[in-house]
């Protein structure tokens, strides 16, 4: 299956090579979870927040083909 991945702010460093902007399409095995996707990207942080189709999601959730997944860290600048 293919999912669209958005990585915000400093997380854009985890995008696959040749990605444009903040997003990439990632191919994963069926039944892959958000944790599998994070592992695939090399993103290991429990302090990163994740959404599926613009709704906050838990790490164990199974992904489906066409899901739009966003990862973002908290910012602190003011």
């Amino acid at each position: 299956m293919k999912v669209e991945v958005w990585l915000f702010s400093t997380l854009s460093q985890y995008l696959p090579p040749d990605s444009k902007g903040k997003k990439a399409v990632v191919e994963l095995p069926e039944n892959a979870t958000l944790t599998d996707l994070a592992d695939h990207l090399g993103l290991h942080s429990e302090t990163v927040t994740v959404t599926i189709n613009d709704e906050q999601a838990h790490w164990g959730l199974k992904l489906e083909d066409g899901h739009q997944v966003s990862f973002f860290p908290p910012l602190a600048g003011g």
Binding site: Q56, P74, A76
Partner: peptide, 29 residues
């Protein structure tokens, strides 16, 4: 909150049923 060219905004209301800041960001990065 801001950094570079990006910003974030959320409102937290008191009381049960309202997600708090840590529901979104449990711990500092």
């Amino acid at each position: 909150a801001v950094l570079r060219f990006e910003g974030q905004l959320l409102t937290v209301l008191p009381g049960e049923g309202n997600p708090c800041y840590r529901c979104l960001f449990p711990e500092p990065p």
